[in-house]
Design a protein around this nucleic acid. Sequence first.
DNA 1: CCAAAAGTGTTAAAACTACACCCATGA
DNA 2: TCATGGGTGTAGTTTTAACACTTTTGG
Lengths: 229, 229
Amino acid sequence: MPNTYEYPRPALTVDIVVFALDAEDLQVMLIQRDLEPYKGHWALPGGFVRIEETLEGAARRELQEETGVRDIFLEQLYTFGSLNRDPRERVVTVAYYALVNLEGHDVRASTDARNAAWFPVNDRPKLAFDHTTILDAAYERLRGKVRYQPIGFELLPEKFTLRQLQHLYEVILDRELDKRNFRKKVLGMGIVKETNEIEKDVAHRAARLYRFHKRSYDRLFKRGFNFEI
Amino acid sequence: MPNTYEYPRPALTVDIVVFALDAEDLQVMLIQRDLEPYKGHWALPGGFVRIEETLEGAARRELQEETGVRDIFLEQLYTFGSLNRDPRERVVTVAYYALVNLEGHDVRASTDARNAAWFPVNDRPKLAFDHTTILDAAYERLRGKVRYQPIGFELLPEKFTLRQLQHLYEVILDRELDKRNFRKKVLGMGIVKETNEIEKDVAHRAARLYRFHKRSYDRLFKRGFNFEI
DNA sequence: CCAAAAGTGTTAAAACTACACCCATGA
DNA sequence: TCATGGGTGTAGTTTTAACACTTTTGG
């Protein structure tokens, strides 16, 4: 008999918290459920782990199927296994968080016959299952990690202004930063390289565009350098 | 038919990396396997998650069954799910790491008819499965986390000397620290309280004993205080 | 010519680093 | 009385934090 085991096994799923940044806020992508339980509620994208795919593989597949997003920064967050997470049966979920830049990826607001949409992290609907707990954990991880690892760049287009970068940190850390000190610090680290382009279509002096220089960062990191905003 | 599912499911296990500190080194607890595969090899304590217990519950149960250790600091590390971790079938494991103080807990070197023993983290045998990867990840997590969260105290007895605390950081961070600067910093944070006891049975001037003051730490932490060694 | 954001240095305060000697205790 | 670690302060350097004006550009 296939799929029969000596002892009962929990179902295993992945759920993904996808963050993006618009001009105002940090956003999270949610999907409206079309099945019970929690039909009609908003939830994190996710689904079952297949027997022949890795956890990260499952996360990437679900993300593409449900939101059209691919080739993005994805990192494991935490595994949630409390007993009554899902009213149907025991389900253990491995949660991931992802960072995308809204310009570079064609994140459709609706795919796969489901309703997908961005919500501000701080102004979101009630979520299905324990997804509020998962989202809170992801947000906290992001806030913590962004300070000492240069993952924030994943939320920006390849070329960005220092103002955009500062805005990113201000939104995530939820406090204002001093412009001069911020520039001094970021430029002093030598991990962004200026391009010879400037931003376009702005109604004021155009700012220089910079690019994250992973090569420099990796070199510094190996020497014990501590990226810290 | 019980334990039969529509789709195949991976087995779900927990594995625990238990760290302790002796006078010299950081140690890790390993168990010698008495069954195939990897019979006779050393491995991390761990085992299957039962359908009616949480992940952390499974970790604590296995830890007690296999090593006799209980009531200790335990934190989820990472979930490992690559396809061929286990030669028998697909097994996903949720790894935890634990910190114990050798004085306070009666960690028997052998229980449950198995052979359990401490090994220096930097001088350990080859491990079964992907347990070397798991141990390395735990060690890295410990090194990272100990610097900005006061989890190191879990490796010490309730009352400890500042020298012991400094030694702990030197071993984990693998570098020497300046005695005066270290004391200045730790005492300046106000998160250890001196007791009016001194150490005993030492062949030199006895040092004052201190105690970690969680209350003060929690208060500072809420105000955004950043514990940093 | 106005509105809006770009870009740019200095100074005071705080934190960090390096460093050496006397003291108390038990063997 | 000797060996061992306990305990203590200062000075130079580096890092951080606070702060305001001129320039460029498009509307």
